[in-house]
């Protein structure tokens, strides 16, 4: 879209990506993130999202329609996070929704620059996260298909368990907290 260089929030953190014993941490940057608000019972709204983003909005609290983009994560009774493969898709998606849903009561905000994703994988991933998070991360309780907003080491995050065998988890974090959280996770992985 321009000659200007894209800089991800974690471009300047020393030690990333990290590969330790039973734990890997990488930034999954430059994906598309759209914050979506609307009524779950509004069929026009849900159909437009399905048609535009190719995902069906999960209605059960703390669930996700998938683990890889495109997917939608439940954030609240009228709020979702749409994850799309790239930030260009997010901009396109928001424009398309605005056009398709003119006159409907809804909101779509492109927040691709507002947050980034840290992917933790390996046998120790959940233990590392437990050092900063009070949520029950047992794989039997918090497995693929679920998601949760919670605190991680004093930052607000969204957790998304992956479908891999090792029980990896993605951590969606706000851009301004990302540098702090990445350093914290690296320290906790030592």
């Amino acid at each position: 879209m321009s000659e200007i260089e894209l800089r991800t929030p974690l471009v300047a953190v020393p030690g990333l990506p990290y590969r330790g014993r039973d734990i890997e941490i990488v930034e999954v940057a430059s994906q598309g993130h759209v914050n979506l608000r609307g009524a779950a019972r509004n069929a026009v709204f849900k159909d437009a999202v399905q048609a535009t983003a190719g995902v069906s909005l999960p209605l059960a609290a703390n669930t996700a329609s998938g683990t890889q983009p495109p997917c939608a994560l439940w954030l609240g009774p009228d709020e979702w996070l749409l994850r799309l493969p790239g930030e260009a898709q997010a901009a396109t998606c928001v424009d398309a929704l605005d056009a398709a849903l003119a006159g409907e009561f809804f909101a779509a905000s492109d927040i691709s620059s507002a947050q980034t994703v840290l992917r933790l994988s390996g046998a120790h991933a959940r233990r590392v996260l437990s050092k900063g998070c009070t949520l029950d991360l047992h794989p039997g309780v918090f497995g693929a298909g679920r998601c949760a907003q919670t605190n991680m080491a004093q930052a607000t995050v969204i957790l998304l368990p992956l479908a891999d065998a090792a029980g990896g988890i993605e951590v969606v974090v706000r851009r301004s907290f990302a540098d702090y959280l990445a350093r914290w996770l690296l320290d906790a992985s030592r």
Partner: peptide, 17 residues
């Protein structure tokens, strides 16, 4: 670990570097 650089979150802007 809530001491030193981890005592409280440090938020940085995109232009911080």
């Amino acid at each position: 670990r809530e001491l030193g650089e981890f005592f409280a979150p440090v938020r940085k802007t995109a232009m911080h570097p």
